[in-house]
């Protein structure tokens, strides 16, 4: 039971962390290596909210807004000029991540920050005491996933985004303002990353480089999901399970590289990853 809960909550956390990257990769066909920096930005929004004496949950909307606003600036000045050079965009966003990490260090110092707990204590489920927060995070993942899917299916912007994912040239030919779709998508992706950063605060220590550790896992999951939300959810479940099981029964060190190695092998066998299934 404990294992099942661990697998589910781990998958939920991975999903929350990856979904912003997925949105950007799907529509812009660009890998945002500054994704980790936006997770960090979100976590520091929680720090700021605590310093301002706000309710810890208020950090969520704050992080989304700040993350999206900064994402807009990044899209405008860094992503847009590199749209035709996707490999260079990886590098430029990585450089941006360094810059953001150093700016945060200059502003807050390099020490680990304390944030108030969003939700503490344990709940008993079928005879097992389990961290209440991890369950909340799983719930948050479900909510974010459903809202995201609804936005893609039900709004005009979502329709435009799906058109751009399938065939950007044709979408532009049909009069869709693809430049705006890219901007809004990047802002949404950045906002979601910052939101995920807040949700991570009770689980990891908050420091200027906290995002980097999450970046590679999210990146590999998105590669395997290949712009499909359902495939991302499946990938999070499968690889989250692999990570938990290997960490528990083999070794935590092997568990920590399970996602990267398994995802690389899956991609070798099937370049489209899980999205074809």
């Amino acid at each position: 039971m404990l294992l099942i809960l661990d697998v589910l909550t781990t998958a939920g956390i991975l999903f929350v962390v990856s979904i912003g990257l997925l949105a950007v990769f799907g529509v812009l066909k660009i890998i945002n290596f500054a994704h980790g920096a936006w997770l960090t930005i979100g976590a520091y929004c929680a720090v700021i909210a605590a310093e301002l004496g706000l309710n810890p949950w208020a950090a969520l909307p704050l992080a989304f807004v700040i993350g999206a606003a900064l994402g807009g600036l990044a899209e405008l000045f860094i992503i847009r000029p590199l749209y035709r050079r996707p490999l260079d965009a990886i590098l430029a966003t990585w450089g941006l991540g360094i810059v953001i990490g150093q700016l945060i260090t200059l502003g807050f110092g390099r020490d680990v920050q304390m944030t108030p707990n969003l939700f503490s204590g344990t709940v008993e489920i079928l005879g097992v005491d389990y961290s209440a927060y991890r369950l909340v995070a799983l719930g948050a993942a479900l909510v974010i996933g459903v809202v995201f899917a609804a936005a893609m299916e039900g709004t005009r912007l979502g329709l435009s985004a799906r058109a751009v994912i399938m065939n950007e040239t044709l979408a532009r030919g049909l009069g869709i303002d693809t430049v705006r779709v890219r901007l809004v998508t990047f802002m949404a992706g950045a906002g979601l990353a910052a939101l995920a950063g807040v949700l991570l605060t009770p689980l990891t220590s908050v420091d200027p480089n906290m995002g980097v550790g999450w970046l590679i896992g999210a990146f590999m999951l998105v590669m395997v999901a290949d712009a499909s939300l359902v495939a991302l959810a499946v990938a999070c479940l499968v690889f989250g399970a692999a990570q938990v099981l290997i960490s528990t029964f083999v070794s935590p060190i092997l568990g920590s590289i399970a996602i990267a190695v398994l995802a690389a092998l899956v991609l070798r066998v099937s370049p489209k990853g899980f999205s074809r299934a």
Binding site: I78, P81, L82, L91, A92, G95, V99, Q102
Partner: peptide, 10 residues
């Protein structure tokens, strides 16, 4: 260094 790198790439 990071800022120069971004500027050079772009």
């Amino acid at each position: 260094l990071g800022a120069t790198f971004v500027a050079v790439i772009i």
